[in-house]
Nucleic acid binder design. Structure first.
Lengths: 233, 233
DNA sequence: AAGTGGTCTAGACCACCTT
DNA sequence: AGGTGGTCTAGACCACTTG
């Protein structure tokens, strides 16, 4: 007598994944329908669906209604990053958090900012520069633009006490987020504020958010020399 | 007569999210049980579960069996990056892909590599340096270590023709992945191979993989000047 | 020990997409 | 037009975790 054990969706996932890695389902191949796999393995279609959801999220397969499930021809390395509020990040490193607003002005958006938001016409936005400190040393420099059409309340917030970073995260949900990373050489104001020798390589994290079609904010966060961003896995 | 429409899990998610943002469920608060929410909104518990799964993944709530669901006190910005095979990345930019192996040696792991793998003893590994080209111009420089205990076959692969990047992705599944980003100044060999003036800020993507507890490979991929990595949203 | 989220099933209907 | 994945339901049982 064999003992019939219920199949967990992770078992199904592992089985399918193993078949993909062993080329039983080769890159580009079409997999059987969920229902057929369910029948073959002896479980409900829902369970196969749950397994496929995971594989799809991991980037191993691609699913389309009617099109079926295909093994991705080009595997990708998919990673998830958590970018916390800067204050929290500093505190979790066991450092004392500090914050200084550097400037705060209403200005017309330059072309670069319009490009990030994908808008055609220049408008007035709140432009805020601020410095986050860890143990009294420069940690991250923020150069931020906030659309006062979608966030008029921000004009009444005292940004010398609370960072725009924190206020926005707590009060302005977004529906779309763009993030990108790149490296720059320290120069001018950035070098000065971060106390970095001119030329030092610095990591920049650029984030832009929208609510619906309306821009909320875009920020270039330039990190101190040696800063390293790690995945949360 | 009101028309009763079925609730989609996205509707439930949006409703809960809206309550969180409006402080009906404040940061740190415990939410009602899934079943109670289901009853209140008039849907199946499974539907609430699906909604919560999404909110949990997005980092808005935290769930524990018996502990219930809590609104995360510290919101995070969660982002997912797809890092494709370099060849694919180049081709998708519409450029001609090129590849050159620079060196290939079996060497003892230096401390820095041991640290990345989290191992205590130095061992012999395959050390490969290679350059990826886009339209005949340097694109990404790879400095890679491959553990020949978990990947002995790699010793027989002709790495002058196929990049280790590609071979590994296609043949060596991993169970754990570490990724981190940082910026460096171009110097010495790196500057020379990437044809970047000394001092130029460059983005480095560092990846390390394991299968079970066994190290597979670790790579520092240094990108050409101006390289920008964008989230896949 | 008991409460709560996690999962599985079976069946039904829907929505998107390819043909 | 029809096939396939996506979702919803209702009910049951399981497994983790906290009190």
């Amino acid at each position: 007598m064999t003992v019939e054990t219920r199949l967990a969706w992770t078992d199904v996932r592992d089985e399918i994944r193993s078949r993909i890695l062993n080329r039983i389902y080769a890159p580009g191949d079409k997999l059987p329908r969920d229902e057929d796999i369910a029948q073959e393995l002896g479980c409900a279609r829902t369970t196969v669906h749950r397994a496929m959801q995971d594989l799809s999220f991991a980037g191993l397969v691609e699913r389309k209604r009617k099109g079926g499930t295909h093994v991705r021809a080009d595997p990708v390395t998919r990673t998830t990053f958590d970018i916390p509020i800067t204050r929290r990040e500093v505190e979790q490193r066991g450092c004392k958090y500090g914050y200084q607003m550097i400037s705060r002005d209403v200005e017309q958006t330059p072309i670069s900012v319009m490009a990030r938001f994908g808008i055609q016409l220049a408008v007035d936005m709140l432009h805020v520069k601020a410095l986050h400190l860890a143990d009294n040393r420069p940690y991250i420099l923020e150069d931020r633009w906030i659309d006062t059409r979608s966030s008029p309340e921000v004009l009444d917030v005292d940004l010398t006490r609370e960072s725009a970073n924190e206020w926005l995260v707590r009060h302005k949900p977004y529906s779309r987020l763009d993030v990108s990373f790149y490296a720059v050489n320290a120069e001018g104001d950035i070098a000065r504020h971060l106390a970095a020798p001119t030329g030092t390589a610095l990591l920049v994290i650029e984030r832009t958010t929208w609510i619906g079609e309306a821009p909320i904010t875009t920020v270039q966060a330039t990190a101190m020399p040696g800063y390293q961003l790690s995945a949360h896995n």
